[in-house]
Structures are given as structure tokens and as C-alpha cells.
């Protein structure tokens, strides 16, 4: 038996670029379902913090991500030293797709990997230089 893809939902909390009605409808569908999922306030913020949860999400098998543009999501994970598996991640774009389309893709058993092809290996990302990270 294959494990179904995990689900990650981004609330894009700190900007109004994802239509509110789409975010709400997708989250509502997730809450009404019986599936486990991860809901994060803002993937950008997690990437900036290099949140280790991103690594766990990237490494734990296939994943469907309801967020924004696949190119942006791919490199947000890579910037956090947590590259997504090129053939194991599907990004569903809440900026341009309807809530129905996003929900259907999330709950579909089929994974449609759609990350832009290219060099996403950790070796291709710059090395981390924590000593140069900015103080807040």
C-alpha cells in the first residue's frame, strides 16, 4: 500500500496576494475532511527562519502544497536548505486557481509533480553562513 501524499497548506498570512475567499474555502475543506495536514501561517516566513519543519516536510515522501507559484515554493524550500523532491512535490497555486480546483487537486490520490525542472540539489544552493545572518 502506498502512503498518500502529505498535505501542506500555506495561509500566506502577511500579504493579501492569495484571495481570501480561496484560502478560506480550501482551509474549510481541509477541516471538514478526515485527513491529517500541516497548516502554516506563512511559508515565506518559515523559509526566512530556515525552519527545520520545512526539511521534514521536504524529506518525508511525497507532498502536495497549497500555496503560490511552484517556482517560488521550490526556491523558498531550497533557501531553507530543504529542497523539495523534484518528482515528489506538487504545488497547487491558490493565487491563480479556484478553491474547487485547489481542493480537488489536494484530495486527489494522484500526485502531479510540477516543480520547474532544474538544479534543485542542495549542492546547487549556496552554503549556509550563519555567522553572516542578520541580527534582528
Amino acid at each position: 500500500m502506498t502512503t498518500p501524499p502529505r498535505i501542506l497548506y500555506c495561509h500566506c498570512n502577511y500579504a493579501q496576494v492569495v484571495p481570501k475567499e480561496v484560502k478560506e474555502a480550501v482551509l474549510k475543506k481541509l477541516c471538514e475532511s478526515g485527513v491529517a495536514f500541516e497548516a502554516v501561517a506563512d511559508l515565506c516566513e518559515m523559509s526566512a527562519r530556515r525552519d527545520p519543519a520545512l526539511q521534514r516536510l521536504a524529506e518525508g515522501g511525497t507532498v502536495k502544497i497549497a500555496a503560490c507559484f511552484p517556482r517560488a515554493v521550490k526556491w523558498l524550500f531550497a533557501a531553507a536548505q530543504a529542497p523539495l523532491p523534484a518528482d515528489g512535490a506538487e504545488v497547487i497555486n491558490m493565487r491563480v486557481q479556484t478553491a474547487e480546483e485547489v481542493s480537488a487537486a489536494l484530495f486527489s490520490e494522484e500526485l502531479k509533480p510540477n516543480l520547474p525542472k532544474g538544479k534543485a540539489a542542495p549542492a546547487d544552493a549556496p552554503s549556509v553562513q550563519p555567522e553572516t545572518a542578520a541580527a534582528t
Binding site: P4, L30, C31, G34, V35, A36, A39, V40, G61
Partner: peptide
């Protein structure tokens, strides 16, 4: 960030 734990899926 919130994990909804359910029977299926790994957080």
C-alpha cells in the same frame, strides 16, 4: 503553524 493530527498521514 498547526498540525492537524489524524489517523492517516505523518506530520
Amino acid at each position: 503553524a498547526v498540525t492537524r493530527a489524524a489517523a492517516a498521514g505523518a506530520p
